Simulated assay, not measured.
Amino acid sequence: MSATTDEAADSADSAETIGFNPPSRRTALITGASSGLGEEYAAQLAARGENLVLVARDGHALEALAARLRATHGVAVEVLAVDLHDPNGVSRVTARLEARANPVSILVNNAGFGLPLEFESNDIEAEARHLRLHNEVPMRLMHAALRGMLERGSGRILNVASVAAFIPRSTYSAVKQWLVTFSRWANGRYRGRGVTVTAVCPGYTHTNFHERLGLPPGEEGIPGWMWLDAPRVVAESLRDLERGKAVSVPSLKYKLIVAVARIAPPGLAARMGERGR
């Protein structure tokens, strides 16, 4: 598909808002909810009155977050402390998504991790886990959620991708591009039946993501103007989610970066992707 066609499709998305008045108590399931963007999604959805299902490996962090959100917002919060690298953990989450009692109306696929850009030096098993967590796991969770959402005629799925989906950046770009491409197809496929799928593509965002890569604060090699704050990223993406947009790129500066990256020669685009670690 050409860049011009892509831009036209995105313009059509932004021009139309789904005719949907959400009930006061939907249930949102969020993966990777114990920290970073996942924690911020939990906080903002709870502030809107949504009940929550929090998924992550760190059960203690999830329970502490759940207690704060219950006390602050009066919402119901379930905790699923599972490892999404483990097929049994994925099965527990898919079972919750398929449950008809207290059905999940919003799915946020946020769990993920990064690897160094040196693909040739990375452990291939780490690369395989990276691929499964970013692509296979969201695919399984979306598949589990969709049937019930389609039967009810409403649902929202948000896939946390990255602006890297538009800029060559080792396997991280590749897995994020899959999320964007699938989200655009699925949004077109299911939107008319009341279920929308949105890929959010943040740029560099202040969370603990880079710390988990072993990068001390301030050593990522990224100028200050390129950084976004997590609350803004989440607020903009939730707005676009309710509008039914297929792709959400928070902030004007990253919208411009994506526009340039789409038309940049491959060599220049690859050099753009080398910024930061």
Rank of each mutant, 00 (worst) to 15 (best):
T5M: 10
T5Y: 08
E7K: 13
A8G: 05
A9C: 06
S11T: 12
E16C: 08
G19H: 13
F20E: 11
P22I: 11
P23G: 14
A28V: 04
A28K: 02
I30M: 01
S35F: 05
G36V: 06
G36Q: 03
G38T: 03
E40L: 04
L45Q: 00
N51E: 07
L52S: 00
V53H: 00
V55I: 05
V55M: 03
A56E: 01
A56Y: 04
R57E: 05
G59V: 02
L65P: 00
A66H: 02
A66F: 00
R70G: 00
R70L: 00
A71Y: 00
V79A: 04
V79K: 01
V82F: 06
V93E: 02
T94V: 01
L97F: 03
L97P: 01
L97N: 06
A101D: 14
A101N: 12
N102D: 14
V104H: 03
S105D: 15
I106A: 06
N110M: 07
A111P: 04
G112D: 07
G112N: 10
G114H: 07
L115K: 08
F119R: 12
E120S: 15
D123N: 15
E125Q: 14
A126C: 10
R129P: 02
H130T: 10
H130F: 15
L131W: 13
R132I: 05
N135F: 11
E136F: 14
P138N: 12
R140G: 08
M142E: 13
A144P: 05
L146D: 06
M149L: 09
E151L: 12
R152F: 07
G153N: 06
G155L: 03
I157V: 15
N159A: 12
N159K: 10
F166D: 08
F166P: 06
I167K: 08
P168D: 07
S170E: 09
T171H: 11
T171G: 11
Y172F: 15
S173P: 06
A174W: 10
K176C: 10
L179P: 04
T181I: 09
S183Y: 04
S183R: 04
A186K: 10
G188D: 05
G188Y: 05
R191G: 09
G192H: 12
V197G: 09
P202W: 01
G203T: 04
G203Y: 04
T205I: 01
H206R: 14
T207A: 09
H210W: 13
E211H: 13
L213K: 12
L213W: 08
G214R: 11
G214S: 08
G214D: 09
L215K: 09
L215F: 11
P217Y: 02
G218K: 09
I222D: 03
G224M: 02
G224D: 13
W227G: 06
W227H: 11
L228Q: 15
P231H: 00
V234K: 09
A235Y: 03
E236T: 14
L241T: 02
G244D: 02
K245Y: 10
V247M: 06
V247T: 13
V249F: 04
K253M: 09
L256N: 01
I257W: 06
A259P: 01
V260P: 07
A261W: 05
P265M: 00
G267A: 13
R275V: 15
